[in-house]
Nucleic acid binder design. Sequence first.
DNA 1: TTAATTATGTTATATTATTACACAGCGTTA
DNA 2: TAACGCTGTGTAATAATATAACATAATTAA
Lengths: 131, 131
Amino acid sequence: MQKQENLSKNQKIILDLIEKSSGPLKAYSILFNVKKQGIKAPLQVYRALDKLIEIGKIHKIESRNAFVACKNSNCQVSKATAFSICENCEDVTEVSNLKLSKYLSNFADKSGMKYNKYNLEFFGLCKNCKK
Amino acid sequence: MQKQENLSKNQKIILDLIEKSSGPLKAYSILFNVKKQGIKAPLQVYRALDKLIEIGKIHKIESRNAFVACKNSNCQVSKATAFSICENCEDVTEVSNLKLSKYLSNFADKSGMKYNKYNLEFFGLCKNCKK
DNA sequence: TTAATTATGTTATATTATTACACAGCGTTA
DNA sequence: TAACGCTGTGTAATAATATAACATAATTAA
Ligand SMILES: [Zn+2]
Ligand SMILES: [Zn+2]
Ligand SMILES: [Zn+2]
Ligand SMILES: [Zn+2]
């Protein structure tokens, strides 16, 4: 967990919830869990999520439409992300591998396209589930 | 385009549409476009999409909730996919790079997780849009 | 202190995807 | 034949995810 001084009230509430969660959270489950703190509408959640993603505090797991806290302290923006996802228990871990991130950040092919961002999702069975 | 002999009527209609499209198609746009061919309900579209993904004829672009035909003839199942996505014109290209796919298919880290599938999405500006 | 920017609150609505149920076609096999 | 499993279809209803539009407040910058 890092400093949250620049975050607004709703952003703090939602980041706090996501950071304390043991797994990915979905937007409407977040909404349900912060209703007692005065956040009443989906849009309030999505706005906070957008901001938190923008500053790299959380990431969206695209294949699950769910959100996790960034576990990579030097991941200031969500522009180079990799996750491993257990297809059985749906546990998600942020992959933090310097070789991998260098390889992907520098990846270029003959398409002439300049990449400035990537997101990678690995799927499989986690240690517990593959038994 | 490949043989479609084992596909059902709805699957053929929908694969044909996606293969002829110049870019990714969204499920409800597919539905709109196949109404004249008798496909009337979202579920008919999603069922065909699921099957086509399963057999590797199409892929889902997770960050866009859209579907593209597989452009990689040896991509029999959707278990190792990579795409480049232009954030301006939303054009999508399937990245087909042997070194990349080998690197990712063999990727292992200390988590003890065994990966059997991955999906990678690169973002940036395409040749046309970066001018 | 005006203006610009960022965040909030609220209602309504759009978009994406699934559940549930009934039934048809086809190959296997008892 | 009939019973069965399997795959696909058709239809209605609904769930889940996300955004538009508008009004207002709080914060920051000039
Ligand atoms: Zn991160
Ligand atoms: Zn697991
Ligand atoms: Zn492919
Ligand atoms: Zn472009």
